[in-house]
Amino acid sequence: MKKFLRAILMILVATGLTACSNDTESEVADGSDSGAASTNVELSENVLVAYFTEPEETGTDALAGASRVVEEGEVVGSTQFLAQTISEETGGELFRIETVQEYPADHDELVDQGDQEQSEDARPELTAEIENLADYDTIFVGYPNWFSDLPMPMYTFFESHDFAGKTIIPFSTHGGSGLSGTIETIGDLQPEATVYGNALSISRSEVADSRHEVVDWVNGI
C-alpha cells in the first residue's frame, strides 16, 4: 500500500510541474525544452544579421499591426527595423533574404499569398545566397511569424545554407502568435548548428517603440 501511495504522489508531483511550465509565456522565449541552447553564448566578432521582411504599404495601418515601421521618413518592415537595430548594436553585417517573386504590399493580398504558399509547402526562389558564410560564426536570423510558422522563404533559406558549427540567434515579429514552434523548426532544419533558445519575439504593434528592448536583449546574450 505504501509503495502504491508513493507512486501516486510522484505522478501528481510530475503533473503539477508540467502544468506550471505552461502557465507563463514571455516575449523572450526559453528554448531549453526544444534542444536549443538557452544559456548565454559568446558573440564572435564575425556577426551576420540575416532577415526576411515585407513592409505593407497599404491596407491595415501600422497602429493596428501592419508589418511596417516609418524610420527616418522611410517605410521599412517590422523585422527589418529589428535587424537594423541588432546590426547597429553588434556591428554585424546585414543580409536581406529576398525572393525572386515580389510579395504584394497590400496587407490582405500578402496574407492570401502567404497562406497559399504554406498550403502548397512552397519553396520560393531566393534572389541570392550568403556567399561568404564561412566568414561568420554567429548569425542572427529574423523573420515574421506567418500562420504560426516560418514564412516559406525561410525554409528555402535554411535548406540552402549549412550552418553546421555556427550559432543561430533567432528574432521574430508577430501579430499575436509569439514564436509558435519556429525555434524547434529551425533546430530541425539545422541540426548541426547551435540554436539560441532565448529568442526575441515582439508584437508588430510594439516594434516602433522597441529599440531599447532589442538593445537590452542583445546585451543579455
Rank of each mutant, 00 (worst) to 15 (best):
T194Y: 00
P55V: 01
G73Y: 08
T39G: 14
T39D: 13
V28T: 13
A199H: 06
G175R: 07
V141E: 02
S119F: 00
N46D: 13
E184T: 14
N219E: 11
L17Y: 12
S87F: 07
H174E: 10
G197V: 08
S160E: 13
F52N: 05
D137I: 00
G91H: 06
L43S: 02
V75Y: 04
F95G: 02
P124G: 01
T24C: 07
S44L: 00
S38H: 08
L110M: 11
S203Q: 15
E117S: 03
G175L: 08
V207K: 11
I139D: 08
M152T: 14
L150W: 03
V111G: 01
G77F: 04
D108P: 06
P144R: 05
E213G: 11
T173K: 09
K2S: 12
V75I: 15
S177I: 06
I139L: 14
T182D: 02
W217Y: 09
Y143Q: 03
F95I: 02
E57I: 09
T167P: 06
E27S: 13
K166Q: 11
T194H: 02
A50S: 03
S26M: 12
A193H: 07
T18Y: 15
R68P: 05
E93C: 01
E131W: 09
G35I: 07
S210K: 12
T85I: 12
L150P: 03
E93I: 04
G178H: 10
A7M: 10
A208T: 15
I202Q: 13
S44D: 11
E131V: 15
R96K: 12
V69D: 07
M154L: 13
L200D: 10
H212S: 15
Y136M: 10
E184I: 09
T167F: 06
E74G: 00
T15D: 10
T24Y: 15
N40A: 10
I169E: 02
R211I: 11
L63C: 09
E98K: 05
L48I: 06
T167C: 09
A50D: 02
D188I: 00
L133E: 05
